[in-house]
Design a protein around this nucleic acid. Sequence first.
RNA 1: AGGUCAGUCCGGGCAAUUGCUUCCCACUUUUGUGAGAGGAGGAAAGUCCGAACUUUAUAGAACAGGGUGCCGGGUAACACCCGGGGAUAUUAGGAGAAAUUUUAAUAUCACUGCAAGUGCCACAGAAAAUAAACUUCCCGGUUUAUGACGGGUAAAGGUGAAAAGGCGGGGUAAGAGCCCACCGCUUUGAUGGUAACAUCAAAGGCAAGGUAAACCACACCCGAAGCAAGGUCAAAUAGGAAGAUUCUUUCCGGCAUUGCCGGAAAACAGGGUUGUUCGCUCUGAUAAUCUUCGGGUAGACCGCUAAAGCCCAAUAGUAAUAUUGGAUUAAGAUAAAUAAUUGCCGCUGCUUCGCUAACACUUCGCAGGACUGGUUAUUCUGUAUAACCGAUCCUAUGAAGCUCAACUUUCGUUGAACGAAGUAGGACAGAAUUCGGCUUACAGGGCUGCUCUAUUU
RNA 2: CGGAACGUGGCGCAGUCCGGUAGCGUACCUGACUGGGGGUCAGGUGGUCGCGGGUUCAAAUCCCGCCGUUCCGA
Length: 132
Amino acid sequence: MKQYGLAARERIKSKRDFENIYQSGTTIQSSDKKIKAIYVVETDNLQPGVQVAVAISKRAGGAVWRNRFKRLIRESYRLNKTRLVDYCVEKKQTAKVIFSTGTLNQKNYGSLRLKTVMPGMIEVMEGIKRLI
RNA sequence: AGGUCAGUCCGGGCAAUUGCUUCCCACUUUUGUGAGAGGAGGAAAGUCCGAACUUUAUAGAACAGGGUGCCGGGUAACACCCGGGGAUAUUAGGAGAAAUUUUAAUAUCACUGCAAGUGCCACAGAAAAUAAACUUCCCGGUUUAUGACGGGUAAAGGUGAAAAGGCGGGGUAAGAGCCCACCGCUUUGAUGGUAACAUCAAAGGCAAGGUAAACCACACCCGAAGCAAGGUCAAAUAGGAAGAUUCUUUCCGGCAUUGCCGGAAAACAGGGUUGUUCGCUCUGAUAAUCUUCGGGUAGACCGCUAAAGCCCAAUAGUAAUAUUGGAUUAAGAUAAAUAAUUGCCGCUGCUUCGCUAACACUUCGCAGGACUGGUUAUUCUGUAUAACCGAUCCUAUGAAGCUCAACUUUCGUUGAACGAAGUAGGACAGAAUUCGGCUUACAGGGCUGCUCUAUUU
RNA sequence: CGGAACGUGGCGCAGUCCGGUAGCGUACCUGACUGGGGGUCAGGUGGUCGCGGGUUCAAAUCCCGCCGUUCCGA
């Protein structure tokens, strides 16, 4: 497996998973409330690891803005995922996480940069790791 | 040289690292790994029209409903495009006393019909639609006179968005298309034009206010739903159909005693077919177990990208466009890929520094390469090759010329231009079955045309 | 991606079909009744009818184009 990759296997795809996470998941936010995440942990799984998805509300901005934000979140997850994944494999758990916008929207930040997204992401991922 | 407007094209480039995805090849038991090739737009947007495609209906008909509306052409089709005609508005000029008319330029036009029918036209005004008569005007008899009464008329006044052809003359008691000239209108005919329509002539004698983006009439077109259409394969759970076994209530008859056998009933309602009607058509009380069968959800695959395609040339046509020939293969995701970061270059704005030498600029030259078009030659023809000419781009490079404006006696100062460094900005916007249009959003830049301004000749 | 509906004072709604005066409840302001508050009564303020064009003498209403909000279909 590539160290900084994000293959289709590591993403959440089925509708049932989404419904399950939104019903029984735990929400966590970054300190500046830009990013929020909702996750669920399953212990009895054959392949331990982390599965991820990004969900952005239509209210947040136009299609171009939402596309860019999603790509930036995925980029920052890819570059920082190693510690979280190793931790889950150690404990033989599967974590399913959906990242989403907090207060961030197109009116606040018209043009996004990776610098504005990365610190919040790292903070949220550390928080998840602590809580598992 | 700069600006407005119109049309058209582009809408950053290159490299490195890290990733996603489709196709294909190799390795691999699968999962995967590696190499190669490809990977958002002019509007992909709004979803406003038109089609292709798919399902449904295939037993249809009528009505209802929706759309379009000068003429001709184009197209698969259109509410789109091209050409023409007409009307309206604005500006400028001409004619006329005026109403009005005419010429030119520009812009706009859902531009059939209100001399088929029905409806509506607030307020004001006498009257808002088979006209009518408030004030005035005129006549009559009556009265001292005014007035009132009976009649004529619609020219003048006033109201309104709009008042029943306009204007001038004749005519008259006063008036009136009552009569006449000009203009408008209607009808008929002739000429030109495929046609819309235009021009001319004759007649009518005003009959015909506006509104159809009011109902409606006329002509033409449209069945409905939409890729979440639809098709194929197909877990788990629940339910359906057929067969076998067991099984409900009421009534009648028989055996006969609370059971068995036979027959009838529980029943008129609910659907389907296009929204409605006609017409057509389907279903039938009901529980449990077993077996078989079909439908079908999650999921997977197909639909899914080669098409009314794009580029170039020739021919036909005023043009839209068509035909022929050549060249080319160009995203296909599905909780949804097409990206992120860094560096260099290029563009625009701001700040600082520099100054006659360089850079840049202008003029005259010149070498090589790329790409494209034309001409000629070789060749039976095409392809191909070679030579020459033209446009564009890239790389390298020789000679000559030179900073500009304002203020100031000068020194110089300020600004522009140029160069260097730093810094900021870099539009609108993201395929979702596919095309043709329309509409809307858009920093900046290139080219062409028209026109305006400034400078030089 | 496809298909529908709505937009009118601060708030919730009529009026749009069939064109001419924008109205109702509540809120707000003023006054009266009360010793005061609440309540009742009387009077009043407040609306580019989402935006831009067109038709018409005249548009919230009819037609066209935009903007925003909400709902439905796996």
